[in-house]
Simulated assay, not measured.
Amino acid sequence: MENVWTELRLMQGLLAAFVLSGLIGWEREQLGRSAGLRTHILVGVSAALFVVLADTLILRFSDDSAQVRFDLVGVLGAVVSGVSFLGAGAIFAGRRGEEARGLTTAAGLLATAGVGVACGLHLYVLATGATLLFLFTLGWLGRLVAEPHKSREAAEKRPEQKPD
């Protein structure tokens, strides 16, 4: 029965990652982005799970043998590499000098993995603060940056006036 309570305590990190990653995913979903609610939740909870599993393995087996080496930093590197690979699939570079698309989606997935890692380490204040910063960046700053682009696009679409 003690194992059940221990595992339920470990689930706290996954549940926190679920909620915080879901907030980021919800923001992306509202804008109709390809990586939305479910994708961000899966990335965040998976990152938290890998950290919780690595931490559990270290605690369980670290004293058994000097030959066995555990490296939580290696797990973090693997999470970053895996999510970066996933993010790379979200980036599309245009032909003929068009700008790349999907960079914010890729960065958002990496940010969400960071939130998941923090939750897996039970650093809930840090994870919540980072989530708020990410939401501010994606939301308010995103709209602020989009305004000049909309004005420029509207100006480019206007028919050119001929001089009198």
Rank of each mutant, 00 (worst) to 15 (best):
A47R: 02
A47Q: 03
A47M: 04
A48S: 12
A48P: 14
A48Y: 03
A48F: 04
L49C: 14
F50R: 06
F50T: 08
F50H: 07
V51Q: 11
V51S: 05
V52G: 08
V52D: 12
V52E: 09
V52R: 14
V52P: 04
V52I: 15
A54M: 15
A54V: 07
A54P: 04
D55N: 10
D55R: 05
L57E: 14
L57K: 11
L57H: 07
L57M: 13
I58N: 04
I58D: 09
L59K: 14
R60Q: 15
R60W: 01
F61H: 09
F61S: 10
F61R: 12
F61P: 10
F61N: 09
F61I: 05
S62Q: 10
S62T: 14
D63H: 13
D63F: 13
D63Q: 15
D64Y: 12
D64H: 08
S65V: 09
S65I: 07
A66M: 03
A66E: 02
A66R: 05
A66C: 05
V68Y: 07
F70G: 08
D71F: 00
D71Y: 01
L72I: 14
L72K: 13
L72T: 13
G74M: 05
G74S: 14
V75S: 01
V75E: 00
G77Q: 12
A78F: 00
A78D: 00
V79C: 03
V79T: 03
V79K: 08
V80L: 07
S81Q: 03
S81W: 03
V83G: 02
V83H: 02
V83C: 03
S84W: 00
S84P: 02
L86A: 03
L86N: 00
L86M: 02
G87C: 04
G87N: 06
A88F: 02
A90M: 07
A90I: 04
I91K: 01
I91T: 05
I91M: 04
F92K: 10
F92T: 11
F92E: 11
F92L: 15
A93F: 15
A93C: 08
A93E: 13
A93Y: 11
G94H: 03
R95W: 15
R95L: 14
R95T: 15
R95H: 13
R95F: 15
R95A: 14
R96E: 15
R96K: 15
G97D: 06
G97Q: 09
E98P: 08
E99I: 15
G102C: 11
G102K: 11
G102D: 04
G102N: 06
T104P: 01
T104H: 03
T105G: 11
T105K: 11
T105P: 00
A106H: 11
L109F: 04
A111D: 00
T112M: 04
T112Q: 08
A113Q: 01
A113R: 05
A113E: 04
A113N: 03
G114A: 08
V115F: 01
V115T: 06
V115Y: 00
G116T: 08
G120W: 01
G120F: 03
G120L: 02
L121E: 06
L121C: 10
L121Y: 10
L121H: 09
L121M: 10
H122K: 13
L123F: 12
Y124Q: 09
Y124V: 08
Y124M: 14
Y124C: 12
V125F: 09
V125D: 12
L126S: 13
L126R: 08
L126D: 07
A127P: 12
T128W: 02
